[in-house]
Design a protein around this nucleic acid. Structure first.
Lengths: 363, 363
DNA sequence: ATTTTCTGTGTTACCGCTAACAACGAGGGC
DNA sequence: GCCCTCGTTGTTAGCGGTAACACAGAAAAT
């Protein structure tokens, strides 16, 4: 028998692959990593061996030997639970592929000092980089503190990132335009808007997208009724009431997120209005709430998991490149959104025939 | 200068601790791990050195050397997003402390074959143990498949676990009794109940708790109106309508989860009833929905994060003990819940004076 | 033709920690 | 007193990778 090794039962190691491919372990390592300075034929042989043996490198050994990043921080603050869950799933996925541990910490406080304090705690726990999903991606104190400590960060869904920082987002402006066009296409001309929290750059992008789509259709965006909201359900109640109480009640309302859209639906019901027959109401984000209300919300879906994955990839690539001195390749990534048409949007009351015609056409 | 080592800048290693404590690295390792066979005075010295140097072991090196579990699987299926988020946070926390990677995979299908398929995929990706949050904790096919592959699992929130399996839960029966007592204390005597999905053992526990509390108060539990629900918002609408349409309308309704409670509130509003003045409505779980409705829900909060942490601890302890041959110490852990009293519950209509009296007393 | 630079590959020495075993002194039974 | 056991500690040899360097042969420069 072979030496009484401590090796675990039949796990294939880089050594096995090397033997199978007739090269040294180092060459296999090179193929797996940078892949530079390896002859094409050798690479092919190694890749084939890897495939054959179904080999996957041991992340523990890898990070130990390379002394690479092993812990990525994730600082979050009460986004919706649905958002967080999606985000975590994506982040975990990316973390696993990279062989990195995710260290997650919450930071609910909006106080600058406390945010800095939480941030500092990260530094002392060996975190090599930090991911900031919204709303923390907009937090000036946190970014400043991370900068001061030399810890790189990647922000997610931040409207106007600084030139030199890493950022992942969707095109809020384009998405809002698309949603507005959807309402226009249905025949709506009096469309109300509920703005998001003014601190979030995305809020402004969405509102601009709304206005631009109206302008594109030859309507006067300034005349469109817009109420200030703050992304919360409660703020949606107030804003929704104002819009629906107007003498020239809009036939459609575009809320900057699902919570406020859901609140508006509830207001409409209380006023005896039928959605979408009397008023169409659409949201943004496609959170769980979107399907927990009746009728279910037409909304915009962000690829949250994919965004989290992209964020980690960006960050890890950056971390690895720091040693190599090579400048980072990307500092921003824009992922694509999707329109989710459900039951809360439909043609305005005067256009029943259009609805029928469409239904027939689609059938 | 010292040798040109690849060692990363100032990270303290076990070697540093050993030097500071005047012992060998192995002894430090023993203190950190099993702690067996170390003289008390030595242990103290080592612990002091660890404290002083703020040392924390390198998890990569640890799992590499020990060949210990490095990947724990987490299989989930569409619980509420809020539940999942909380659960992931707890699981991540525990995973980090244990130096283990969390591999998460979703399994939405209810088809036995597909569930087995997904489960098998886990095995081929080096997962050493699996955590099953609800509703998958009740899935027979998955448990069977894991058993067949010899992969240990820990179930969470499962009502009647098998004797030999690991399980973490709260006492649903006690929690339901407590909630029912809350309603009884407020003065309610006609209390309706909306049952949970019959496949979930927890549903039965909750219903039994409800019945037992009624019996305890000298009421006939069989006469209490109970409707079947399935944990979904939609099923809550139907059940709520039935209960509220009864000639002898209950003055309080206890729904087996928040989604159904929220649905019942919406039904009540549509019928022009005021909550909690005309009817008190309480839920279970304390999901985000509980505070997204008006009035906010009185409900039972499960320590979801803590349950996830406990689950991982249990599983990892089990995994480690398998080598040692020592029998596992615990196979079940019951964590404690908390009652969250909000605005959706209050005294019945006939008891306004009581309400006032209470308010005064509390003031 | 000779020297220099690459290019592709193998060798060696670790990364930080722990299993296995060896070593050593202190009791205990004969 | 001797041998044996037991509890406590140190030593050695890896775990599975990769950085750094060595080294041969090919291409480029002299």
């Amino acid at each position: 028998m072979a030496k009484p090794s401590r090796r675990r039962r039949g796990v294939t190691t880089i050594e096995d692959v090397a033997r199978a491919a007739g090269v040294s372990a180092m060459t296999v390592s090179r193929v797996i990593n940078r892949g530079k300075n390896v002859r094409e034929s050798t690479r092919a042989a190694v890749l084939e061996a890897i495939e054959q043996l179904n080999y996957s490198p041991n992340t523990a050994a890898r990070s130990l030997a390379a002394g690479q990043a092993t812990h990525i921080g994730l600082l979050y603050a009460n986004p919706s639970a649905a958002y967080l869950a999606q985000f975590l799933i994506g982040a975990l996925h990316a973390a696993r592929s990279a062989g990195v541990h995710l260290v997650i910490e919450s930071c609910e406080s909006e106080d600058a000092d406390e945010q800095a304090e939480v941030t500092r705690r990260f530094a002392s726990s060996d975190v090599e980089g930090v991911v900031l999903p919204p709303p923390l991606s907009e937090s000036q104190p946190i970014m400043a503190e991370l900068d001061a400590m030399g810890i790189p960060a990647v922000t997610v869904a931040m409207g106007s990132p600084r030139e030199d920082s890493l950022n992942v987002r969707i095109d809020d402006h384009a998405a809002a335009m698309e949603m507005t066009r959807h309402l226009l296409d249905l025949g709506h001309r009096k469309i109300g808007f509920i703005k998001g929290h003014p601190n979030h750059i995305a809020s402004h992008d969405r509102y601009r997208g709304f206005c631009d789509a109206l302008a594109e259709a030859g309507l006067d965006a300034d005349k469109a009724p817009a109420e200030q909201g703050y992304f919360s359900y409660r703020s949606g109640l107030t804003a929704g009431e104002r819009l629906l109480a107007r003498a020239d009640r809009p036939t459609a309302i575009f809320a900057s997120n699902d919570d406020m859209a859901a609140a508006t639906i509830s207001v409409a019901h209380r006023m005896g209005l039928v959605v979408p027959d009397d008023v169409s109401i659409v949201g943004f984000d496609d959170t769980a709430l979107a399907t927990s209300v009746w009728p279910e919300l037409t909304t915009v879906k962000q690829p949250i998991s994919a965004m989290a994955e992209a964020a980690l990839e960006l960050l890890i690539a950056d971390l690895r490149s720091r040693g190599g001195g090579a400048p980072r390749k990307f500092t921003e990534r824009v992922l694509s959104h999707a329109m989710i048409i459900r039951e809360s949007s439909g043609p305005p009351a005067g256009a029943k025939k259009v609805k029928k015609a469409r239904a027939l056409r689609n059938a």
